[in-house]
Design a protein around this nucleic acid. Structure first.
Lengths: 199, 199
DNA sequence: AAAAACATACCAACCCAAAGGTATGTTGGC
DNA sequence: GCCAACATACCTTTGGGTTGGTATGTTTTT
């Protein structure tokens, strides 16, 4: 029996990575465990050693891969944005990159697909949304305190709105292969963000 | 053999209805043809007589059920909205009703799930989006001409944005069972729409 | 008008591949 | 030696899809 070197953490990560690719393309129901393990060049034995079942795998992926990816690409960079214009160009950049591989796109697609049928996954995904939302709310708070965000803005409500806008973009841009829709979305968001400016 | 009375159109519709329920809950990959026909109290024979395969069934449902439903609930009512305030309360109402059964919710969820993996379905869904977008753009045009929408607004861009906002709402409201998120979304959209007002 | 001929609508049973998951190994490493 | 970390083989169910037939209309013929 051809047995590979034993590297549990590496193996686990390989499975999560493969699962991520499959989930991002085919969604949850559309991704078979067979495709996942073969993509990772492993076997079901390895998979079921690390995860009790498919849903647990998905939850682990959400918590251990998707959430960190969101943190890295969409949340952490906001810490250094100290003006509305900086935020706007940040949003524009994220916007133009919205494609199936992007963590935000995966987050949204998976939520849309599974939240109704698999409440447990919905909860796990909501956690990620929640962090995202909170980070934007915090940023808005900072902006209000520093004076570059209008006083009338309610950070919590506004953050929910912005999250929804990005979520919507990931859906509406999904049908088009060219990036005309991406540009339109980026422009529209840009125009909208201008309304947050302190006068 | 127990054979029901032959009512092809009724049968076809029953299958489409059942498919709609299943798709709205479990998505495309998550819905089996078995569940669909059993829900319709029919058999696979009936299904495959009316539709060549699963994808064709989905496409037929999109064109013959989803699109009309969108037209009826989200598009046609806009014809009689002759002020920004009327539009705002219309949007608020649609917003509060955003749940898995709503056509917009199904449209968004299915798009998020299938657009990447099943381009043909993506095209069919894009058609629905396109009509929706066009109707809002037209409404904005009317508003500009009549003077209750600000001159600087670009109807096409703005329409895309509004569609995205609704799409995003269907996703972000999906995890929560209570309607707190619905209210937040409705309020945020309401505040946003105010910025379209002619001064 | 009735019967024969044809076409449509549907059912029951089956097929095979793939699904998620289990049981039973081996093997590397402390 | 022993247990964690894998591999192999298999099991059961469900997936989409087919097959062959039968009941029901509809049309044609006489």
């Amino acid at each position: 029996m051809k047995q590979r070197k034993k590297e549990p953490v590496r193996t686990r990560q390989a499975i999560l990575d493969a699962a991520g690719v499959e989930f991002s393309i085919g969604g949850y129901s559309g991704s078979g465990l067979g495709s996942i393990v073969s993509r990772a060049e492993l076997t079901k034995g390895a998979l079921f050693h690390h995860f009790p079942d498919k849903q647990a795998l998905a939850k682990a992926w959400i918590a251990d891969a998707l959430a960190p990816a969101m943190e890295k690409l969409w949340i952490a960079p906001m810490d250094v944005l100290s003006s509305l214009d900086a935020f706007r160009s940040f949003c524009r950049a994220r916007c133009m990159e919205l494609r199936p591989g992007d963590p935000a796109s995966a987050l949204v697609s998976l939520t849309a697909e599974t939240a109704a049928a698999y409440p447990e996954l919905g909860v796990a995904l909501e956690v990620v949304f929640s962090d995202w939302r909170a980070s934007i709310a915090t940023w808005l708070e900072r902006g209000k305190a520093a004076g570059w965000i209008h006083r009338s803005i309610q950070p919590a409500v506004e953050a929910s709105f912005i999250i929804s806008v990005f979520s919507g973009f990931t859906v509406t841009t999904q049908c088009r292969s060219d990036d005309s829709m991406h540009r339109t979305c980026a422009s529209a968001l840009d125009a909208y963000l201008e309304t947050l400016r302190a006068q």
